[in-house]
Nucleic acid binder design. Structure first.
Lengths: 217, 217
DNA sequence: TGCAGCTCGGGCAAATTTCCCAAGCCGGAT
DNA sequence: ATCCGGCTTGGGAAATTTGCCCGAGCTGCA
């Protein structure tokens, strides 16, 4: 079957929902130049499938947000730096997007995009270009993309400690007491952490802390 | 076009993601007996499309959570009690499932299901039977056996929906927009949820939602 | 020496949270 | 039929927090 790849773009589909995979497979294959050569339904299998089929593009459709998808990206890129990975999800949080690119993704498109935008993104990524959908470009633009790596690398020791306690459920006053700081300082850290990580919500902050292993839930 | 219905099952697809709709459409139509006669990308349009095409089955694929989906179900059923609605989502919380059936759904399948299970569910629903995927039956079964009142039992439908979106990282404005409520109302729910659950912090709320399976991290 | 970055906090306007309250609606109990 | 209670929806007003600006002390490093 690998002869096909010579005339088109071979794709590995990663998604945990079987029927979603099948739907995308049909949409992609109707394009003529796109060929789904393999599927995987979890992050762990993704690399095995990648190694076995050496696809031109990996389309990672992570419906659930964070960690396992990012892990899969790192997993593949660490061992095959030439891999092209297009993240395809319904989430559009700046933190997630940045993390995905930092982890080595080549593109990021949301499910709100038109089908044509998605297939064009696959073609762009296959050519080695970076691709993202308009809405993603928008959130990133506002967020003013910084070349920093993992989200936690941007944070100082104190910031991480405060984030940990906050994500653990502590109030601002409690954190101030624990760390012998003024409430004002803790508030400022809270704000600083949010701007550094791109989280716009306390909830996003908690999710971030959880996916980074800062807290367990 | 309605002559087709005589030989098969006509389907109305409701989903907010264009490419997802297109994928499902191809999967369903490849079955031979299933025909997608219309699509809608939001709850508001769903009833209009239903009235215009009178499909045998409505497949409601609400990736974005709930209330608007539940509303759409009630909306359709209230005016066309004969309507057969199959909810098709990635969520598998008992609360949601029960709400959906209470709202008048005929079936509930998750995206984790095999494509064959999904199309069979559509056929079952078209015959007027009730249908649900194995995993849904499982969570409902466990739920009915557990006398332990989950924290979620204290919360109403709206509260749960708002908690879900909040824990997912949405801002108050976003939730208000999604659910067509005033910001003030969402704020009040936010407060109410905290007092009902005893959470004193947004972070505690997120953790609570996560442990209840309302959101994944 | 000097810059850069972390840590710590003040200030102040704008926004949000916290409570309390009211009204409509609906289902169940009386 | 009526009342009670709970859900849903929002207003109001005080209290608190956020967002963003600032300065200052400390450290490490070039």
């Amino acid at each position: 079957m690998s002869e096909i790849a010579a005339t088109g773009i071979s794709v590995l589909l990663v998604d945990d929902h079987p029927i979603v995979r099948q739907g995308y497979r049909r949409v992609l294959e109707s394009q003529g130049d796109l060929h789904v050569v393999a599927e995987a339904d979890n992050a762990a299998d993704a690399y095995g499938a990648f190694k076995a089929h050496d696809p031109d593009v990996v389309v990672l459709d992570i419906s659930m947000p964070g960690a396992s998808g990012l892990e899969a990206i790192r997993n593949i890129r660490a061992r095959s730096p030439r891999a092209r990975i297009l993240v395809f999800t319904m989430h559009n949080e700046a933190v997630l997007v940045k993390s995905a690119f930092a982890a080595g993704a080549s593109g990021f498109v949301t499910k709100s995009s038109e089908p044509s935008a998605v297939v064009n993104a696959i073609r762009s990524v296959a050519r080695g270009e970076r691709a993202m959908s308009d809405d993603i470009a928008h959130v990133l633009a506002e967020d003013s993309l910084s070349p920093t790596g993992s989200v936690l690398d941007q944070l100082g020791e104190r910031e991480i400690e405060i984030l940990r306690q906050f994500a653990g459920g502590a109030t601002t006053e409690e954190i101030a007491t624990h760390l012998n700081l003024s409430v004002k300082t803790v508030q400022n850290y809270h704000y600083l952490i949010k701007s550094k990580t791109g989280a716009r919500t306390d909830a996003q902050l908690v999710r971030l802390a959880a996916t980074c292993g800062l807290t367990r839930i």
